[in-house]
Design a protein around this nucleic acid. Structure first.
Lengths: 242, 242
DNA sequence: AAATAAATAAGTCAATTATCGATTATGGAT
DNA sequence: ATCCATAATCGATAATTGACTTATTTATTT
């Protein structure tokens, strides 16, 4: 998977969610459904063909005769629009790509990222990757995923606002900073962006900076130090976390 | 409506769409549905009460017995979660707010914003607000909304990446820059961010800068000059656009 | 360990969707 | 005025959802 394609599928996935969100939350979903088909310039016939149904069915959705289509149908509808566009070169999808989809900078700083289906207490997450809690505030709070960050890269290569963007994704998640020296910079960044991850894990150091600790305490963010040697070990330990 | 409340409802609306998008596009929507209820720490009973149904129905959705719930149900489900959270002070919703929801900077530069349900050719949009096309490339392309920008503010007060964010919202839309002097700065900004609005309208000038024109031509973006005197006149002309 | 609350499961039935096929507009081109 | 493609409407039908009870299993709390 080359980078081009990776970026495209990122944009596609995000756009799909956006479209679906707009459809479902709208006061008149029919209109929104229709609007997107017309944006993608796909005829009912072509789309019906892709979906393996009759054009009249599509008309029914778009006219509002079916007031509450099932989510499977909506998913297929949107997936098909995006697939047809991709066959045509992905023009429309690309035109809706947001800057953050390019991921040029962000993704190079993010080593790994995962979502859980059920919550896991911060303390248990720590155990899994052999991390010791330094600040225990709220360590029983549940987290629902993690982001593993190459911190030298994140700090030096990303702009402040890109950091904000990165951190914005992380509430209810664990943020793991690798290759840190004192832990001060990441915690200051967290403070400045006024974001509250569910857990912060520092890697690559032994003694945690006092300022970093104080910030964690003040913000009520549990802070831990991971004792695994390499970044690969961390990735490995997290492999089978559901 | 005070600003606090405005920001909150923005965060709420966006979060609702995000949750719905995640549910619908997921391989196993049941799990995602359940995950969000548990994030909001709402019991099936409490939620069922809010929805006016029996707890077992909720269990049905979350166990996957109903494989494709209707979008109306999903909307109610998510709306109820957010409503319950709001009654409790909106803690969880707030914790998911993204920096851009605060809108402190962006919204001060955006004067007006609207979405259309059906497309309108760029040329027709120009007629509506008494704007003359200077660069006619792609002026028959359809647009689906507009963003009216206070450009002095946008240029001086917003950072580059916030501009990117702003421009990212604008593909397939008309961007109207008010109070411009030559039109060069906005077009250079567009070039730099490599974003392609469906139409750019400049307001407040008579002669368009040559560089601005050349950029528009090269990028294939139709460019027009609006002859209405005040910004209020523009807002007024756009009032009854569907 | 008992008691209470929360969540899941199974059986049932009415209301709706999902779907078709045939018919009837609509809106451009010729 | 006519033709063609696209879209909308409508009636009929099988499949599912939306929903209720009641019973059972699985946490929590005491």
């Amino acid at each position: 998977m080359d980078k081009m394609n990776d970026e495209f599928s990122l944009a596609k996935t995000r756009l799909a969610k956006d479209i679906v969100g707009e459809i479902v939350m709208s006061e008149s979903p029919e209109k929104v459904i229709k609007k997107w088909r017309s944006i993608f310039k796909v005829s009912q016939k072509r789309l019906a063909n892709e979906l393996g149904i009759t054009p009249s069915v599509i008309s029914d959705y778009e006219s509002g005769r079916r007031k509450s289509p099932g989510i499977k149908m909506i998913k297929k509808y949107v997936d098909s629009l995006l697939m047809i566009d991709e066959e045509r070169g992905g023009q429309i999808t690309r035109s809706f790509a947001k800057p953050e989809d390019s991921g040029a900078s962000v993704s190079s700083a993010v080593i790994d990222i995962k979502e859980f289906h059920s919550g896991m207490p911060a303390s248990e997450f720590c155990r899994r990757i052999n991390a010791g809690l330094v600040v225990k505030a709220n360590s029983e709070k549940e987290i629902y995923g993690y982001t593993l960050i190459d911190s030298p890269r994140a700090i030096t290569e990303l702009s402040f606002s890109e950091l904000v963007k990165l951190y914005g994704l992380t509430t209810q998640r664990a943020l793991i900073f690798t290759k840190t020296t004192t832990g001060k910079t990441p915690m200051v960044a967290i403070k400045l962006t006024s974001m509250k991850p569910g857990l912060v894990i520092l890697h690559g150091l032994s003694v945690v900076d006092e300022v970093a600790k104080r910030i964690a305490e003040a913000e009520g963010i549990p802070l831990a130090v991971c004792r695994l040697r390499s970044v690969d070990d961390i990735v490995e330990s997290l492999r089978d976390v559901q």
